[in-house]
């Protein structure tokens, strides 16, 4: 029995060590080296002392918060209504389909839609507002990022609502609650886990959407992800890039602590 266990575990543990543990250790290790390869704490000192990095981090978190909020506002009603439709599976599939289109293609589409002569500007001219610079602004970054994240928010909320025992809703109305009260006191609290995983699924990636800041945000918006990409692939200052990476990992764990729920049951039985 021991031998068979070892057989199953061998490739998997190599993967765990090489691609899960080692990269995390290495990024932490790298963050203590400057661009010449000397051991130093300077990267952290720079990060926490220079206003630029802190402002950038704050902005990135703020943008991620806005993106999460927008997607949540659009997705919750969508998921709620989807559960009630007749051909749920089909509709759900249609929500998933756009996520299978490469993110870059969707971003690329917005280059056309938001451009000076694009559809949105034609519409603005038609309504009398006149042409506006939309592409390469903070707003365009927020809109495109929210657009891309919407399905990832809908799915977990949908799953949570779908799993809900419908007899609770009946019980609630039997006990005299009106629709709004049922929603506020029964449906919403029960779907909260879905909202939490949706927030997780949207917030953390939103901190690191560097391709969107480059293609759509026109480098006006700098997220943590943009800064990491810049340090690794443009200025080749891996130490500083890793330092920001460590900050991002810490932010990720904090986020998971806030939204993670302690389940007493086995972790994966849904």
């Amino acid at each position: 029995m021991k031998q068979t266990k070892a057989f199953y575990f061998a490739p998997y543990s190599i993967w765990l060590l090489l691609f899960v543990v080692a990269p995390l250790v290495l990024i932490l290790y790298q963050s203590f080296f400057d661009i010449q390869g000397n051991f130093t704490f300077a990267n952290y000192a720079t990060y926490f002392q220079s206003g630029t990095y802190l402002t950038m981090t704050f902005n990135s978190i703020f943008y991620a918060f806005l993106i999460t909020l927008f997607t949540l506002l659009i997705s919750y009603p969508t998921a709620y209504l989807l559960v009630k439709t007749k051909h749920k599976q089909l509709w759900l599939l249609l929500i998933i389909l756009p996520t299978w289109i490469n993110l870059l293609l969707k971003a690329y589409a917005f280059i056309g839609i938001f451009s000076m002569n694009g559809t949105v500007n034609d519409f603005l001219v038609f309504t009398g507002i006149g042409r506006q610079q939309i592409l390469f602004t903070d707003v365009s970054f927020l809109l495109v990022a929210s657009y891309i994240e919407i399905p990832f928010m809908i799915l977990p909320i949908y799953n949570a609502l779908e799993e809900m025992n419908p007899s609770y809703i009946k019980a609630s109305s039997d006990l005299g609650a009106n629709n709004w009260e049922t929603f506020r006191r029964v449906i919403f609290p029960l779907s909260l886990n879905g909202v939490k995983s949706g927030v997780q699924a949207v917030f953390i990636p939103s901190l690191s959407l560097f391709m969107l800041t480059r293609l759509i945000g026109g480098n006006r918006v700098i997220t943590l992800g943009t800064a990491i990409e810049q340090h690794f692939l443009v200025t080749e200052n891996w130490g500083m890039g890793s330092t920001i990476g460590v900050v991002l990992i810490v932010a990720m764990f904090l986020m998971m602590l806030v939204t993670g729920e302690k389940k007493k049951k086995g972790a994966f039985r849904k």
């Binding site: 690191s208 990491i228 690794f232 890793s242 990476g245 991002l248 990720m252």
Partner: peptide, 10 residues
């Protein structure tokens, strides 16, 4: 759960 950028960089 790791952001792509972290996976790529590490």
């Amino acid at each position: 759960v790791s952001p792509d950028v972290i996976i790529g960089a590490s």
